[in-house]
Computed example of a mutant assay.
Amino acid sequence: MSTLRPVSVCDTTPLQRFESQSSSGEEPSSPTASSIIAAASGPNHNNNNNVKLDLQLPTFVDSTRSQGSLYAVASNKKPPLRGPRQIFGRILTDLCLLSCVGLPMLGFSLWGEAVKRGFFCDDSSLRHPYRDSTMPSWILYLMCGALPLTVMLVVEFFRGQDKRLHSPFPKSTMCSGYHLCHLELPTWLVECYHRMGIFIFGLGVEQLSTNIAKYSIGRLRPHFYTLCQPVMKDGTTCSDPINAARYIEEFTCAAVDITSKQLKDMRLSFPSGHASFACYSMLYLVIYLHRRMQWKQLRMLCHLLQFLLLMFAWYTALTRVSDYKHHWSDVLAGSGIGLTYAVVVTSTMW
């Protein structure tokens, strides 16, 4: 009587082919049902209970889908909340940084004295008439101060609404992580604060650089003779032949209607503060619109606004020469200061 002994049949021909394909770098084909049955069948296929089949197939995972799910979970996760302590701490820090720029500017305005620079009586560049500014200061402050802040407020608000409508997780896009009085501040408001803060800080640095140059050089304006009517210490004037080729440093202004502000401003020609202010604000706003106003439907409108802003800065710079407020080199230097700071400040904007 023949005894039955357990037989382990593993015809692994299909499996070996599967492994050879995997090792050769080819994309392995999935084992079919027929190949598995053929592997399990053998000379003693009637003893199915004693057949031991060991199949270890690799597990294929859709990496793209898994990464997408991870990103989705990460994007849906709310940022940690920051209370009033963090908010007011951030505002206080920003105010301290701004005071480092604003206080020197205030000191220049109240107590600053420009260098006492002399002149030649035959210098024709100082004999232009005195005229009122075509671009007064209040229009400059309105266009270069209030307008950029208003545009940033409107653009950031609509960007926040657009993200909320088109995001798969609208609640997460509205969460900024800052809460005040049991209310969480929206993301667009925090972004608006960041953009405005960078703009104001850059504006202060640009104006401080301009004032340092003004008070350090003390260049006389083109309407110096008309406004001052200088008289020398010996009582002579520029009409006397003795002063024809002299470099005059000690003089007084004989004009009776000149104010102390005009007397101080008379020596602050280089560089042009109007030109630097306008060029900085307008170029900053142009770059801001280019990087933040990205709606394809309003692309032509964005380009039109950018053109108008640049033309305002260009026109402001030209009027400073035509109104005899500055020499052409003063306007060129002021424009260069404003453009340089605008590029530097906006270099990290996204």
Rank of each mutant, 00 (worst) to 15 (best):
G235S: 02
L185R: 04
M105G: 00
S20T: 12
T12W: 13
H327T: 13
K261H: 09
L81I: 12
I242W: 07
S216F: 00
S167L: 15
C302G: 15
P241S: 02
M349K: 05
T316C: 06
V154R: 10
R127H: 13
L339F: 10
I212V: 04
M232Q: 01
H194W: 08
A245G: 10
A33C: 04
I248D: 04
I337M: 14
T93M: 11
L126N: 04
T150R: 08
R85F: 15
G218Y: 03
L227G: 00
M196P: 13
L81W: 13
G197F: 00
H182I: 01
F251Y: 05
E156W: 02
R117E: 07
A40L: 01
P84L: 05
Y215M: 04
W188R: 12
W111H: 13
V9I: 08
R320M: 14
S329G: 12
M105Y: 10
G197E: 06
G102D: 14
Y225P: 01
C181M: 11
V345R: 03
T59V: 11
S172G: 10
T12D: 10
I198Q: 07
S133M: 10
F199N: 05
C279W: 05
N243A: 08
G89H: 00
I139C: 09
H326V: 02
G338L: 05
G197A: 02
L149N: 12
L165C: 11
A342P: 00
A313D: 10
G83W: 11
T32S: 07
E184Y: 09
K261F: 06
S239W: 01
G89A: 10
F270A: 03
G273H: 05
K214R: 09
E250M: 09
K171N: 15
E19R: 13
S276Q: 03
S24R: 04
R221P: 04
